[in-house]
Computed example of a mutant assay.
Amino acid sequence: MNNVRKFLLSLLVITLAVSAGVGSYLYTDSRNSSEEMNELSVVAHSNAENDSATVAKASTGTVTKTSSGTANNVSAETATNNNVAGNGTTGAATTTQSGKLPVDIQALQKANPDIVAWVTVPGTVIDYPICQHPTDDSYYLKHGPEGMKSSHGCPFIEVCDSKTFQDYNTVVYGHNMNDGSMFAGLHKFENKKFLDEHREITVTTADHVMTYKIFAAVMYSDKYIPYYFDDTKKADRTAFIKSLSTDIVKKRSIVLSDEKVTDANKVITLSTCDKKLRDKRFIVVGVLKQIDGADV
């Protein structure tokens, strides 16, 4: 009997130790991922704000100095044509119609050249860089946006999709994390009221700011979208839009009828997993409405 008690006690100690170790790892991993994202967010947005301030000054004809100390009167036209950046270089970013510069992707690429864009979904915590590994589509499932190993990974697109987001359907993947980070927030769109009040997705690349209007949030089939549907074929583009109403779990899916999306539009698909339906994907789909503030 004493041996049994000793065994059970030892088993309990081992179990507690393992649980503590796993808990510590998960906490540390979550904290590191959050810190990494916060650091990149500061780089992305602070540089963009500085660039915006530079353009604002240039538009009023503010006198600036060259490295030699010579005064130059920078006109609004010059600032626009040269895409004046906060560091004094040209071509750093493109302005929107409002005069604001996008997220500074070029600054982020100094941390990791795989960063191709930034995605923001108002009403959720989704405000993250998007990566694209040049050869390994699974890399950012287990690595953060600076290439460090992380169970949180980083939102990413695959090599079959263009970095410009000008394919018919660009699919962005992200984990459904227990701590609510990454693309866990997509599940908020299962609520019709939330969806009605939050219809926007913004993607910033090195050259443009693209605004999408969400028209579908569905528990989708396990089809591998980028390879199941050929974006170059009109029939496949039409088939994808149709599948949003047919290849789904209907009680957990919403397709709004106020946007008539056709094969002539461009769309973005944000995709994550579901905790219960492991063989399904939850996707939020938006149609491109504006580029740099101009309607498309």
Rank of each mutant, 00 (worst) to 15 (best):
T96Q: 11
P102L: 13
A93N: 04
N87D: 14
T90M: 08
A92M: 14
L101K: 04
T89S: 14
S75E: 09
T78K: 14
L101P: 01
A93I: 00
N81G: 13
I105F: 01
G88Y: 04
G86K: 06
G91A: 07
K100N: 09
T80M: 10
S75I: 11
K100Q: 12
T78D: 13
T90L: 13
G99F: 06
A85S: 13
N81P: 03
E77T: 15
V103A: 02
N82L: 14
T95P: 01
A93S: 09
P102Q: 14
A92E: 10
S98M: 04
L101F: 12
T96G: 12
V84C: 03
S98F: 04
N82Q: 13
T96A: 06
V84Q: 04
N87L: 07
S98G: 12
T96E: 15
A79Q: 08
I105H: 00
P102H: 08
N87M: 06
A85I: 02
K100R: 08
T78V: 11
T94L: 01
V84I: 12
T95W: 08
T80Y: 15
G86W: 02
T80D: 10
I105W: 00
T90F: 12
E77G: 14
A79S: 10
A76R: 15
T96V: 11
A79K: 07
N83P: 03
S75Y: 11
T80R: 14
G88D: 05
N87E: 08
A76E: 15
A85F: 05
A79H: 06
T90D: 14
S98N: 15
T95H: 09
Q97G: 06
D104C: 05
T78E: 12
G99M: 03
P102S: 00
G99H: 05
V84K: 00
V103H: 03
A85H: 03
N82P: 02
V103G: 02
A93D: 00
E77N: 15
A93Y: 02
N83Q: 06
T94D: 02
T89Y: 13
D104I: 07
D104A: 10
N87Y: 06
N87T: 03
I105N: 01
A76Y: 15
P102G: 10
I105V: 04
V103R: 00
S75C: 10
G88M: 13
N83F: 07
S75K: 15
A93M: 04
G86D: 00
N83I: 05
N81Q: 12
A92W: 07
S98A: 13
N82G: 10
E77K: 15
I105C: 01
P102M: 11
A85E: 03
E77A: 15
I105A: 00
G88K: 10
N82H: 08
A93P: 00
A92C: 10
A79T: 12
T96W: 12
V84S: 02
T95Y: 04
D104M: 06
T90Y: 14
A76V: 12
T90S: 10
V84P: 01
T90E: 10
A92N: 08
Q97A: 11
N83S: 08
T95M: 06
N82A: 14
G99S: 03
N87C: 05
A79N: 08
P102K: 11
V84Y: 11
T80V: 14
G91T: 03
A92L: 00
D104P: 04
V84R: 02
S75Q: 13
N82D: 11
L101I: 05
S75A: 12
N82C: 11
S75H: 13
T95Q: 12
S75W: 14
S98K: 09
G99P: 02
K100C: 00
